[in-house]
Design a protein around this nucleic acid. Structure first.
Lengths: 129, 129
DNA sequence: ATTCTTATTGATAACTATTATCATTATAAC
DNA sequence: GTTATAATGATAATAGTTATCAATAAGAAT
């Protein structure tokens, strides 16, 4: 069920997202992609990011520092550090327990779960002491 | 520490958010506020919503159907129903356990936690069967 | 109550982020 | 290699929000 054409631009954009582990913004992506292919247009980056989202190959993260993209589509949470600004991945082995408990308690069906913590990351907390 | 003036417009906007329990958008608010004071400007709604956010009197919720506002600032989660579109409040008595566990596991400090579930609400699930 | 200071307002311009348009190009099927 | 058309790059258009600014009104001082 591979819809659409596999253009060089689309391939490149996905590569860059996968290489970039720091949850890049659209402008981060545009700048990095331009270094490889300087003729690429901004609209092409937007278009392909939307396609990759539709295909489920990347996820959107909404933070105080703007909209970012994540190539890790396994269920996990994020912490946005108020000191250094980085977005840290947080994995929760009790993720399924949380959603199941809520489903039972409220008689709802949960398909997706987005968790964003705000606080101070491990590195910044170390320096603070 | 009450900064700023207590204008009629600001009072009205907060009143409307509190009355409206359905997590209104900016345009929802603007429309409802205009019914009471038809001369109010759109910019005034934006300005006062931002002030109320800064003062911690309301919270911002980011959903697929846009940015919404919540007058309940106690820690709780939300479910966005993919059938009817409503934003349902979800309270978790194990909220503190979740954040503490993550703080210990990752050596981080958590100040705020945003949880958005996507799925089907209790009412829609009932009708589905 | 009247005056005074200035934060806030309403109207609108400006700005930012994203999407739509469209002629041209490149993909992939034949 | 041809052909059909999806995707591209450039740019116009749109949506959502913030900035500007003269006029107004809140609240302190008189």
């Amino acid at each position: 069920m591979e819809l659409g054409r596999n253009t060089k631009q689309k391939q490149l954009i996905l590569e860059v997202i996968k290489r970039e582990k720091n949850h890049p913004t659209i402008s981060d992506l545009y700048e990095e992609v331009k270094e490889v292919d300087p003729s690429i247009g901004q609209a092409t980056v937007y278009r392909n990011v939307n396609k990759l989202l539709d295909e489920g190959k990347i996820k959107r993260i909404i933070t105080d520092s703007g909209i970012r993209y994540d190539c890790d589509c396994n269920n996990h949470y994020h912490l946005e550090c108020s000191k250094c600004g980085r977005i840290m991945d947080i994995y929760d082995d009790k993720y399924m327990k949380l959603t199941r408990r809520m489903e039972e308690e409220y008689s709802i069906k949960i398909d997706d779960c987005t968790v964003l913590f705000k606080g101070i990351c491990d590195k910044c907390l170390k320096y603070e002491k």
